[in-house]
């Protein structure tokens, strides 16, 4: 048991360790250790292309997270608190879980085909197909499409924990709809919505394939920059960038773990 655990954690963390170490290695070419340096991080800050990609990455993550948090929360509320028929509910469940279980490459192919079809439709009625070409807009739509399901999943779990007793009690005590949502459901649901938002943000940063399929040359994100550079070979500057992204993931995962930690009060 311990052997399997050691191998598993080695497989998970050796590559991350290797990147972190290499990002401080003074060697310009190759990965053999020649000395300690901060140079690659300094270069990273000065790199115009990296700065632009960082802006794109953040813009994409923030915009898609904002949209998907709203849509996902409404979806969760709509599914949980409406008297759907059994078949209606299972159809909704199926559509909602589709992005969770599909390999990302299928989501990406579907997005490309959807935008292709929209372009074709726009062309055939004489409109400009430009809004449906590759770029940041298409990337945002693609990210929202998979984030929405995860947000709904997290918020639904929270709704299930809250249950309907409190609402029944509030209504019995003549709470208005506004009062109930503002004073009771809102505060109880907020940790769930926050966890959903952080998960959506993490997923956006974690994504490569959907962005890769939807990006235009001017809308590269940081993972796309690393990928393009890796295709040409290893570069210490990219190791520094990868280390920064890794640290970001650690912070986000920790925040997520704190928010979704099972609590006694709920």
């Amino acid at each position: 048991m311990a052997v399997a655990a050691v191998i598993a954690f080695a497989l998970l963390y050796l590559p991350l360790l290797a990147i972190a170490v290499s990002s401080f290695n003074a060697a310009r070419y190759g990965v053999a250790w020649t000395g300690f340096t901060w140079d690659w991080y300094a270069q990273l800050l000065a790199d115009e292309r990296v700065r632009e990609a960082a802006m794109n990455t953040l813009l994409l993550a923030v915009a898609s997270t904002a949209i998907s948090t709203v849509l996902g929360t409404l979806l969760a509320l709509g599914i949980e608190r409406t008297p759907w028929s059994r078949r209606g509910r299972s159809a909704l469940d199926a559509i909602t879980y589709l992005p969770v279980v599909s390999p990302d490459i299928i989501l990406a192919a579907c997005l490309v085909v959807a935008f292709g079809a929209c372009r074709w439709l726009a062309d055939s009625v004489g409109w400009s197909g430009a809004p449906f070409s590759r770029g940041l807009g298409m990337m945002i739509v693609g990210h929202v499409a998979f984030q929405v399901s995860f947000v709904a999943l997290v918020v639904r779990a929270r709704l299930a924990v809250i249950g309907s007793h409190l609402e029944e009690a509030a209504r019995d005590l003549y709470a208005s709809s506004w009062c109930f949502h503002r004073r009771i459901l809102g505060p109880l649901l907020l940790p769930g919505i926050a966890a959903g938002a952080i998960l959506a943000f993490t997923l956006s940063l974690d994504d490569f394939v959907v962005s890769f399929f939807a990006a235009s040359p001017t809308s590269s994100t940081l993972p796309l920059v690393i990928y393009a550079s890796l295709r040409r070979g290893l570069s210490p500057e990219m190791h520094a960038l990868a280390t920064v992204i890794f640290l970001g993931s650690v912070v986000l995962t920790a925040a997520l773990a704190m928010l979704t930690r099972p609590r006694r009060d709920a």
């Binding site: 360790l17 974690d206 990868a242």
Partner: peptide, 14 residues
């Protein structure tokens, strides 16, 4: 939760 490109970069180093 760490980007797959980053982790694969790690294997390319190792």
């Amino acid at each position: 939760c760490t980007n797959l490109v980053v982790r694969t970069n790690g294997w390319m180093i190792l």
